[in-house]
Amino acid sequence: MLTSAIWLPATLAAGLFQAARTAIQQRLRATLSVNGAGLVRYLYGLPVALALWFGYAAATSAHLPPLSPTFFGFALLGGLLQIGGTNLLIMAFGERSFVVGTAYAKTEAVQGAVFALWLLGEVLTPLVWLGIAISVVGVMTLSLGGKGLKLRDVFGALWQPAARYGLGAGLLFALTSIAVKRATQTLGDGDVVLRALTSLVAVVTLQLVMQGSYVILRERGQWRAVLGSWRTSMWVGLLAAAGSAFWFTAFASAPVALVRTVGQVEVIFTLLLGHFYLREPLKRAEALGLALVVIGVIASVVGSG
């Protein structure tokens, strides 16, 4: 099923970088709009993405894969979907807590599995599907803030604004993964890391053009705020670019649903960051959610073998 053993460490690293980036980006919401907070990822992330690409190409003496209109089409689509998902996720933060907003968005694993089966023909084993289901139950346990798994609580939470924003973000992130994988596939069968970094540079460049243009036209004052926040924003860009490099590498090496499921270790990192960095209180029932996420991830990895 898998084309490279690199996908697992790449996914774990991506989850760690993404959790750290999101924690810092949440702090920017005090001074930036939704679009401004999203823009910092691309404005400060593009130099990092370019440095990673040139550094890797120089170290390996690799050559640029052939680019096609199809590649740029999928890169554009993936970039646009990720912008939408990021904005919805930031909006979810504003409705409840940092940990809860991220947990709702992590339904992207099961959404990604369904769409990858439909659009990419990625067939998963029953054990992987079971792992996805268990991990999603785990993140939903966390998202309910320790209320447990009572049916009325689950359905009641789904009607809250944070849930709608989070679920929408999960859908767009799942589709982003598929678009990015397709973009990478158009680059041939060469070095998987170089293909992933090439896709990363293209996507981030297009995202900067798209969201930067929107901010100039609709929220011009945010540009000054984004530039003025450089001390914090540069870390968001660094972590976002590094995390995306790992995500893109994993997507190019393994089924989308498997990567997204294992990537839910981000929730564990998020919970720890939410407690130690954002001072959010930990609840006893969250231990159950964490355990389910771990069990689901392990089942998915074993099932993929």
Score class of each variant (00 low, 15 high):
Gln160Arg: 12
Val259Thr: 15
Val267Thr: 03
Ala37Gly: 09
Ala157Thr: 08
Val226Phe: 02
Ala291His: 00
Tyr214Pro: 02
Arg279His: 04
Gly212Ala: 00
Leu142Met: 01
Val139Gly: 02
Gly221Met: 00
Gly94Lys: 07
Ala252Asn: 02
Ala240Phe: 14
Pro161Asn: 02
Val114Phe: 13
Pro47Cys: 07
Met140Cys: 11
Phe276Ile: 11
Ala245Leu: 15
Leu2Ser: 11
Leu76Pro: 08
Val209Asn: 01
Gln111Met: 14
Phe115Asp: 05
Arg195His: 12
Trp129Thr: 06
Gln26Leu: 05
Gly84Phe: 09
Ala299Trp: 06
Leu89Glu: 13
Arg21Gln: 15
Leu167His: 13
Ser135Tyr: 03
Ala225Ser: 13
Ile298Cys: 02
Val48Gly: 03
Ile24Trp: 14
Met140Leu: 12
Gln211Asp: 00
Val209Gly: 00
Gly303Ala: 12
Ala23Lys: 03
Ser253Arg: 10
Ser4Asp: 11
Glu280Val: 07
Arg41Met: 08
Val203Asn: 06
Trp53Leu: 14
Arg260Trp: 14
Gly112His: 08
Ser304Ile: 00
Phe74Ile: 14
Thr86Lys: 14
Ser135Trp: 09
Leu171Thr: 04
Met140Pro: 09
Phe248Thr: 10
Gly188Ile: 08
Val293Gly: 01
Leu217His: 00
Leu142Pro: 07
Phe72Tyr: 10
Gly45Glu: 03
Ile6Ser: 12
Ser143Lys: 01
Glu266Lys: 08
Ala57Val: 05
Arg218Ala: 01
Ala225Val: 03
Val236Glu: 02
Leu127Ser: 15
Thr102His: 01
Thr186Tyr: 13
Leu171Pro: 05
Thr186Ser: 15
Gly101Glu: 00
Gly168His: 01
Val136Ile: 11
Ser199Asp: 07
Met140Asp: 09
Thr22Val: 04
Ser97Phe: 00
Gly305Arg: 13
Gly296Thr: 13
Arg164Gly: 09
Thr60Ser: 08
Arg260Leu: 15
